[in-house]
Design a protein around this nucleic acid. Sequence first.
DNA 1: CATCTTTATCGTCATTCTACGATAAACGAT
DNA 2: ATCGTTTATCGTAGAATGACGATAAAGATG
Lengths: 110, 110
Amino acid sequence: MDMNLPKNLVNPYDTELFAAMCKALAHPARIMIVNYLQQIDRCLCGDIVDMLPLAQSTVSQHLKCLKDAGFIKGEVDGPRTCYCLDKTMLKKFSLMVDALGKPTSERLWR
Amino acid sequence: MDMNLPKNLVNPYDTELFAAMCKALAHPARIMIVNYLQQIDRCLCGDIVDMLPLAQSTVSQHLKCLKDAGFIKGEVDGPRTCYCLDKTMLKKFSLMVDALGKPTSERLWR
DNA sequence: CATCTTTATCGTCATTCTACGATAAACGAT
DNA sequence: ATCGTTTATCGTAGAATGACGATAAAGATG
């Protein structure tokens, strides 16, 4: 998205990235997954399927969405996949959200 | 969304709310609007239309979306509407995002 | 090797989102 | 009262999302 504003007022690159991060979290099932992983550290896809009232294929889709956005990592282990949070990414997201409520001059990210 | 997990592990109410907040921010144009309002404090709808490469009706739609989620407030002034951020809401969102990366026991919100 | 378990992907359908132009509504100005 | 300005809403078209079942793929197990 091209903006009609001087660079010192906006940052289109971060805007796109930040919107994409929000989008990845913009569904209750995906929030549930992140919460769950936060609390049990790591688990198999099947565990998440058991927790959510959704079909296995749907859960797999949500996991892909979170993985593509960088919020979770999946480690293949035989026929299974073990998922865990990427806390670095969560931290980054948290910093960007903080920045949203502060003037540019006080922001820690670019 | 109904979960198959004990209450001590999840919080469906907050999950829905948080997902809705993320959704409201899950578009570059809406991030731009929040950023813009952060930097100029308050402005008319028309100013935002000038900034964004979008039709007036589309911008109005995005503003409604942010307003419905509580991130901005609109004060009608004659035929105009003056928009500004609701920093309380941004703060709340920020706290919820922080919580996402922490165990339940350390969370400041319910 | 045949079978079972686990997960990812495909195809599909219904819904939601995003964009636009057209129009209505609210008011200020002439 | 009429006209111009500003903004919200309506209708709509196309794209994206979210759900599912079916199926493929990758190993384990008998």
